[in-house]
Simulated scan of single mutants.
Amino acid sequence: MKPFFASGQTESAENLWEQFVREMSEFLQDTEMWKDVSFLVLRIVLICVISRLALAVLNRIIDHATNEKKSRRLKLRTRRVQTLGRLLKNTASYLINFITILLVLGEFNIQIAPLLAGAGVIGLAIGFGAQSLVKDVITGFFIIFEDQFAVGDEIQTGSFKGSVELIGLRSTRIRSWTGEVHIIPNGSINQVTNFSVNPQLAVIDITVSSDYTIEEMMSLMRQVLLQINDLNLTAAPEVLGVQTLAPSQMTIRITAKCRPNTVGEVTRLVNTEVKKALEAKQASVID
């Protein structure tokens, strides 16, 4: 009996194999199916190519609109325009990719309307659960469009001060002068002090001995300041006069208008030049 059942199982397996081979052969020889598949692949490739071309055209338009020469001609801040250009490019990329995915799904006869409705419901639920994220995104848009600050600006918000490295939709990255990087959610940026919009004023107080007269010291400092030639200065430094008096010393105040973010450099330069002049005068008196 065992050989009989074994032979029956062998014939059944052979019949199944032959049926599988026959069905595969008919499937591979179905010209209509291959024609439909070819058109489907061609349409998907065309959608991808057209989407890439559309994205490239949009990027070119954005680059042209945010061109440095054009922004200067329209009296727009170059760094703000560059930041806005990067934001527009990212937005265009997300939008084009989203539309491309929807069109490709449509080619597979997947109903898009239910997907959009479901995405809307999910987005609404996420919106209620991520109000802080929505607040960060909205604040990020207002920071850019209101030109509160731009990449490269020196700002202070709260206890954080430094140079702006990145303005994203959700957060802003600031690097302090000592190297620390602070990542601040846009929604928590309530007050901002921007040190890069207008020229700054360096205030330098120099303490000298009362052995010299006030007129003598102020005249010496004026001569030194007139000889300082630095690109960071927007006007010649001025000697305002005596700020404080003490029995054995006096403090003379100097102000210097300088380019944004250069107060430290100008202050060190003025201190160095005045110190050199004072040392030279003291040496000449001793001689």
Rank of each mutant, 00 (worst) to 15 (best):
V134I: 15
Q148N: 08
T139Q: 06
V134W: 13
P114N: 01
D136Y: 00
A150M: 08
E146S: 12
G152T: 00
T139H: 03
L115T: 04
I143E: 02
V137C: 06
I138T: 05
F149H: 02
D136E: 06
F142K: 10
A150R: 07
A117Y: 13
A117F: 13
T139P: 04
V137K: 03
A130E: 15
G129F: 08
I138M: 05
L115A: 02
F142N: 08
D147Q: 08
A113V: 10
G118S: 14
G140S: 03
G120I: 13
A113N: 15
G152R: 04
F141D: 05
G120N: 12
V137W: 02
A150I: 05
L116T: 05
G140M: 01
F141Q: 04
G129P: 09
T139K: 03
I122L: 06
G118A: 15
G123P: 05
K135G: 04
G120V: 13
F149K: 00
A125M: 09
A130Q: 14
L116E: 04
I143N: 03
A125T: 10
F149M: 01
K135H: 00
L116W: 05
G118N: 13
F141V: 09
A119C: 02
G118D: 12
Q148S: 11
I143A: 00
V151N: 09
L116I: 08
E146R: 14
I144N: 10
I138V: 03
L115W: 03
A125D: 04
A150T: 05
P114R: 03
L133C: 09
F142H: 15
